[in-house]
C-alpha cells in the first residue's frame, strides 16, 4: 500500500520555481494555467499596495497581485522582464506578479520539509513547506492562503 502511494507521489510532484524579491518560491505545476510576460495593468482606485490592478485575459477581467508585497517584502517595480503567473483559484483566474520564472523541478514528496517556526505569522500562513534544491531554499506557496485572505480583505 505504502509503496504504491509513494510511487504515485514521486511521479506527480513537479513544481515551477520562480523568484520574488530575490527569494525562490514555487507552485505545483498543476496549479498554474499559464505564464505571461508582464504588461502594464489597469490600476484600481483605492486598491491596497499588493493589488496591482486588473488585466485582460482573452476577454476576462482578472486581478493581478504583487506576490512580493503580499508576502510583506518590498513592492516589485514591475517591468517587461517580470512575469505574471496565472493560477486558478476556485475556478477563477488570478494573476500573480513574480520577478522571473526559474525552472521546473521534480521533487520526491518526502523531500518536502515542514516550514520551520519563525516569528512572522503572515509568512507562516503563506508557505506550506520548503525544499532544498541545489543547496538553495525553495518555498512552496500555499495558494489558497494567499488568495483567500486577499479576498477577505477586498470583498
Amino acid at each position: 500500500m505504502q509503496l504504491q502511494a509513494e510511487a504515485k507521489h514521486v511521479e506527480h510532484s513537479e513544481f515551477v520555481s520562480f523568484t520574488v524579491a530575490g527569494q525562490a518560491f514555487c507552485l505545483q505545476i498543476t496549479q498554474i494555467r499559464e505564464i505571461r510576460r508582464w504588461q502594464p495593468v489597469t490600476v484600481l482606485p483605492h486598491a491596497p499596495a499588493d493589488v496591482l490592478g486588473v488585466m485582460n485575459l482573452r476577454g476576462a477581467v482578472i486581478p493581478i497581485y504583487d506576490l512580493s508585497a503580499r508576502f510583506g517584502l518590498e513592492q516589485t517595480a514591475a517591468s517587461e522582464r517580470n512575469v505574471v503567473i496565472v493560477v486558478s483559484v476556485n475556478d477563477k483566474p488570478v494573476g500573480l506578479l513574480a520577478e522571473a520564472v526559474s525552472e521546473i523541478i521534480s521533487i520526491d514528496p518526502d523531500d518536502i520539509q515542514e516550514t520551520p517556526q519563525v516569528d512572522s505569522r503572515n509568512t507562516m500562513d503563506f508557505i506550506q513547506g520548503i525544499i532544498s534544491q541545489n543547496d538553495e531554499m525553495v518555498r512552496i506557496i500555499n495558494l489558497n492562503a494567499v488568495i483567500s485572505s486577499r479576498e477577505q480583505v477586498t470583498q
Binding site: 484600481l44 482606485p45 483605492h46 486598491a47 493589488v51 486588473v54 477581467v61 482578472i62 486581478p63 477563477k92 479576498e151 477586498t154 470583498q155
Partner: peptide
C-alpha cells in the same frame, strides 16, 4: 468586477 476585486468606490 464582482468576484474580481470586490467593491471599488467610484467604479
Amino acid at each position: 468586477l464582482d468576484g474580481v476585486c470586490g467593491n471599488v468606490p467610484g467604479v
